[in-house]
Design a binder for these strands. Structure first.
Lengths: 143, 143
DNA sequence: AGCACTTGCATAGCTCGCTATACAAGTTTT
DNA sequence: AAAACTTGTATAGCGAGCTATGCAAGTGCT
């Protein structure tokens, strides 16, 4: 039974993700941000005041993971959590001014990281690459 | 400034890696294995008795991460660490019988997971997918 | 031989992901 | 209205990754 890690999609996916994560980590560290907060920030920059439930749905992240991430974000002054007026269970998440101000530099950092990592691919390859990953992800979401 | 997470290579890479990791986790849990040990096991199944240093180099994993992973592996009876005879600093890592016996079922599990996740791609797409990820990884390794 | 330097590993402490569990606030059933 | 169920968060505890730091074992210079 032969198995080469360098031909294994799962291994390669993990390796590549670590590389992206390390790069983004160092780029956004000067902003006082960490990678785990990024997805939540993207959603909130788009539509502020989402509930924790809505965030987990949009990001395919477990509820417990989101709760912990939001706790760190609140600790670090990026968000405030307020009880929903109509539903005493729900927590609505609101960005602070600081978080709003970080949008542009943070997105720039992410774009730079993406561009650098894909520098070895031509335009066609980049499109294919994105499309293929999306397809693999969709295979899970639908199955 | 527009930025869509679903067009961001870094975000997609992270998401895809999480999906692979969750799938493999559940598949190898019955074997008493976790994903973090998998890369080290692959190397050791191929050539037993590597040093910790050699493992970190072959897997592009930080030394501290490897030390922790090996500590868990030793705790779980997968490996034994023995001082190198010629170099009192180096630890050589040796598989236990149990770890050797797990090779075939573990690799089967990984192959099944890979196959399932790539089920939505045709043969040509699979080849392209692997090749593109390898290329992205290589961009880091060379730069 | 003695000193500084390098190398291999371990440890501390953090983020971020997960599962399992608890619990209070809603909702439905009876 | 009370009981049973569902839903939204929080917490505990673990794995896996990282940086920073410490330290003992080897190497090199003088």
């Amino acid at each position: 039974m032969n198995f080469s890690k360098d031909q294994s999609a799962g291994y390669l996916a993990n390796h590549m993700a670590r590389i992206f994560a390390q790069g983004l980590t160092s780029r956004i560290k000067p902003l006082g941000l960490t990678t785990g907060t990024f997805p939540a920030l993207l959603e909130l920059w788009d539509t502020d005041g989402l509930s924790q439930k809505q965030l987990t749905e949009r990001l395919d992240i477990e509820q417990a993971t989101m709760a912990n991430t939001l706790a760190r974000m609140e600790r670090d002054g990026l968000i405030v959590r307020k009880k929903d007026a109509n539903d005493g269970r729900a927590q609505r998440v609101w960005l602070t001014d600081r978080a709003r101000d970080l949008r542009d530099p943070a997105i720039t950092a992410a774009q730079e990281e993406n561009a650098m990592r894909l520098a070895g691919l031509d335009e066609d390859e980049k499109r294919q690459f994105i499309a293929l990953i999306q397809k693999v992800i969709k295979t899970k979401m639908s199955g």
